[in-house]
Nucleic acid binder design. Structure first.
Length: 822
RNA sequence: GCCCGGAUGGCGGAAUGGUAGACGCGGAGGCCUCAAAAGCCUCUGUCCGCAAGGGCGUGCGGGUUCGAAUCCCGCUCCGGGCACCA
């Protein structure tokens, strides 16, 4: 009836069938081996744009491919549904509650993903803002609290004036601005909740080595953790008996070069060590440092003027027993190491800059290389001016100085991390409440687990005051102390949304379990995630937190303790850029897939995303993209005509003969080559070359039909083509297969290449002289070396070049190549 | 500043030591059609040449090798990450 494939009718029909028939629903008792494919659950920002399309297409190809290979593929979906945009929209738009807003966006995104033909086990859907998810999110927090992995303390924090909340270090960009709003981040001293990720720093770092992840992601995590080995040493303060300044250094060997010591402005000893005549300058410095953002602090450095002030006190350099002045300066960071440093201006450029600005002495303890024209030399060399270290190289001296400090009780070996504990408090409404109350009698008291979840009140007003509406909601604030039964005040901070996303992949294994956040048997069955797919943007934040949480949950008995790493393989797809920046709703440069669903169908759009560029690469959306999408649609029509030929097309009319036999053989080999390369490509996320191989096979089938290959061989190749196409263009493959055979192509086993068809009987041997191509000769694949040489030397083209000379050397790589050197 | 990627036709890209440019987009010509759409066929790196054929060619300069887009050294440009972390 229909010659043309009506994708607009067929695609939604197949989408309904896959959902209704539960094709991609997987349970614990499934006899097939489990395989877990997960795309990072999205923040629901509304209908999908091309970035989502690319992401979910990649994931869906893997789900369908592994299913055809015989796995019980767990393919769940969820929504990272807490977060600022919903609350900001409520504040701006007035009427809509963040829940209503968020759920509308979820419906839109879910519809897009369904329309794309991506298949999930929707029974497993989780949403972070669902009370059920919040309950376990809070329960995990309470267990972390009980185990000492969550704690509250006053700390200098990153405050974003735009978002009116604190940010984790990870959310502050290197220029000192907020990653969300772009505002300059300020410093504030606030009581905040932290998670003790640093306890796992060593394990998380060490485990990176054996992780099958992209090297650049691992490098980024290593840099972020920033482990450094050194010494903590104590410097006694002159005229302050008992007072010592503790500093961390990785260069114990430079001790003889300490010419001053610096405290950060926030250091607890600043007030005590500042003498009256220096108080004014020191206080001014500390006040400026406190009020300024990191960016302003760094910008002050551009003038090379290291800002600092003398305290008036001195401490003793333990190496020389000489007193050195103690300064306060804002180039020392309070939150790293001990918040104080020993300054060695000859071997550290920052110290050198400061020393010059404040006329402090510089003593070299390493001989710089000949011709060194810089100021501070931090590289290797021979020790000088260093007493018992003189003449040693830096590494040996470092070890000797360390031993000396330890033996003298002055210091001990220490490892410091750039990684800080994870600050999770957010002063916002639309997040998961931190389940504690403040009791005048008992202090911080956790909410009883039986009383979870602590829900967000619905009757709140969103006003542009910058304050969380929770702070003014009486019914929410008023709580009963679980310890004494007296009245208490509820915590109004909510959790960073990265907490929600740090364990959802575990929850997805048993999303409806009412007793525990993670069912052990389910997690043991499905975890770890075999293929995790997402953007490189989460290389540090989400992926680091998830690795931490997986370990912490295991150690708390909330998840299988033997599962340390959540994601076996990670694939980071490139982003789609439009007008120079990543396509995203917040940037307002999105291209919707909707018009393509209508004009060419989901399959053509999927194929385009698979074909247009290597999946790991970024690619720029250009006007040419539309032409290429049209090309993919054209290709699919070409496939369709193999199944339902036009009436004026002729096929297989030639009489059987030797030509036919050879063409049939060639078609069969083309088919098995396609199976082989596509299977390899899909396993390596090289979807672009997989599509290209599909096209080559299609071309080969057309060629064969043209030559009159018998119907059985063509039919066989078309069937294989449809199976190979099934993960990438699932609707058309399903429709075509059903017409030919009935049943589901996606339930067919994945084809396996027969090695017998991968070897060629005849090979084109190339003949070179001095590495330059001269001739091509068709030879038997089994040709012997001497025979190949003889054939090559017999070539007229070679004779021309040789001009009667005899070859100096002949390189033979039978049957592919002979290179004659003259 | 440090670290990590990348550079191949008009365009997206393929080839990881052995025929550079697979596959596709765009372009040119032809067929079909009253016409169009759709489709089919041929050509399409560049220069010289009527042609046969030949020269050149993977950002630039060197090197290793019988042979380099591919490996090594040094540059240029582009992209990303980190950046006062002692």
């Amino acid at each position: 009836m229909r010659a043309n494939y009506d994708f607009e009718e067929a695609e939604p029909r197949w989408q309904r069938r896959w959902a209704e028939e539960g094709t991609y629903e997987v349970d614990l008792d499934d006899p097939r081996p489990p395989y877990y494919v997960l795309s990072m659950y999205p923040y629901p920002s509304g209908p999908a744009h091309q970035g989502h399309v690319r992401n979910y297409t990649f994931g869906d190809v893997l789900v369908r491919f592994r299913t055809m290979q015989g796995y019980a593929v767990l393919s769940p979906f969820g929504f990272d549904s807490f977060g600022l945009p919903a609350e900001n929209a409520a504040i701006k738009g007035g009427a809509k509650h963040p829940r209503e807003y968020t759920e509308a966006r979820i419906a839109e995104l879910r519809a897009s993903v369904l329309r794309l033909g991506a298949v999930y086990d929707w029974r497993r859907e989780v949403r972070s803002h669902d009370p059920d998810y919040m309950r376990f999110n809070q329960l995990i927090f309470l267990r972390l609290l009980a185990a000492g992995l969550a704690y509250r303390r006053e700390a200098p924090v990153n405050w974003c004036p735009g978002c009116q909340t604190v940010l984790a270090n990870e959310q502050v960009l290197s220029d000192g601005t907020c990653e969300r709003s772009g505002d300059v981040v300020e410093h504030r001293l606030l009581e905040q909740w932290f998670l003790r990720i640093t306890k796992y720093a060593d394990e998380i770092l060490a485990a990176l080595d054996s992780l099958d992840w992209p090297e650049r992601v691992k490098t980024m995590q290593r840099n972020w953790i920033g482990r450094s080995e050194g010494v903590l040493l104590r410097l006694p303060v002159e005229d302050h008996p008992g007072a010592t300044i503790e500093v961390f250094t990785t260069r114990a060997d430079t001790g003889f070069g300490i010419t001053y010591v610096v405290l950060s402005p926030e250091h607890p000893l600043v007030a005590e060590l500042t003498t009256p005549e220096n108080r004014a300058a020191v206080t001014r410095l500390c006040r400026t440092a406190a009020s300024e953002s990191d960016r302003q602090r760094m910008e002050s450095d551009v003038s090379l003027e290291k800002r600092g002030a003398y305290t008036g006190s001195r401490c003793i350099n333990p190496f020389t027993n000489e007193p050195v002045p103690i300064y306060v300066a804002d180039y020392v960071i309070a939150t790293y190491g001990t918040g104080a440093i020993m300054a060695v201006p000859a071997e550290d450029q920052r110290d050198h800059d400061f020393a010059v600005a404040h006329s402090l002495p510089v003593v070299r303890t390493v001989t710089p290389p000949q011709g060194f024209a810089g100021e501070a030399w931090s590289g290797p060399g021979t020790k000088i001016n260093s007493g018992f270290l003189d003449g040693l190289d830096v590494d040996t001296a470092k070890e000797r100085a360390t031993e000396w400090l330890v033996a003298g009780g002055i210091g001990e070996r220490s490892v410091q991390y750039r990684l800080r504990d994870w600050l999770i408090s957010r002063q916002r409404y639309w997040g998961c409440p931190i389940p504690v109350v403040y009791c005048p009698a008992d202090g911080i008291v956790p909410v009883a687990e039986a009383d979870l979840p602590v829900l967000l009140p619905e009757d709140v007003e969103f006003l542009p005051t910058g304050e969380s509406p929770l702070k003014h909601h009486q019914a929410f604030l008023e709580a009963i102390c679980p310890a004494c039964g007296g009245s208490a005040t509820r915590e109004t901070d909510t959790m960073d949304t990265f907490v929600d996303s740090s364990w959802y992949f575990l929850r997805l294994c048993s999303p409806r379990d009412h007793d525990e956040p993670v069912d052990m048997a389910s997690a043991r069955h499905f975890m770890p995630v075999d293929q995790y797919i997402g953007g490189i943007t989460h290389a540090i934040l989400h992926l680091l937190y998830a690795r931490f949480y997986t370990r912490a949950l295991g150690d708390l008995g909330l998840a299988p303790p033997e599962i340390r790493e959540p994601f076996t393989q990670l694939f980071c797809q490139g982003m789609i850029r439009l007008g120079g920046s990543a396509m995203s709703k917040s940037k307002g440069n999105v291209i919707s897939p909707d018009e393509y669903f209508k004009s060419v169908g989901a399959d053509a759009l999927r194929l385009f995303h698979l074909f247009v560029a290597p999946p790991v690469d970024d690619f720029d959306w250009t006007p040419q993209s539309d032409e290429m999408i049209e090309g993919c649609a054209r290709y699919l029509r070409r496939v369709w005509r193999l199944v339902v030929p036009d009436e004026n097309e002729t096929a297989g009319t030639a009489a059987p003969g030797t030509e036919t036999t050879r063409a049939t053989d060639e078609l069969r080999r083309a088919t098995h080559r396609a199976i082989d390369s596509i299977t390899t490509d899909l396993g390596r996320y090289e979807f672009n070359t997989a599509v290209s191989a599909l096209m080559e096979l299609t071309n080969a089938i057309y060629r064969a039909r043209h030559l009159g290959v018998d119907h059985a061989a063509v039919d066989d190749s078309v069937d294989t083509l449809l199976k190979l196409l099934a993960p990438m263009a699932p609707h058309l493959a399903a429709e075509a297969w059903e017409r030919r055979h009935g049943g589901h192509v996606h339930q067919e086993p994945w084809p396996v290449a027969d090695p017998a068809f991968l070897v060629e009987a005849k090979v084109t041997m190339i003949v070179q002289t001095n590495g330059k191509l001269r001739d091509r000769i068709l030879v038997d694949a089994s040709i012997a070396e001497d025979e190949a040489t003889a054939l090559a030397l017999a070539s007229a083209k070679v004779a021309e070049v040789l001009e009667g000379r005899s070859p100096r050397r002949v390189i033979v790589r039978a049957p592919n190549l002979v290179n004659i050197v003259v």
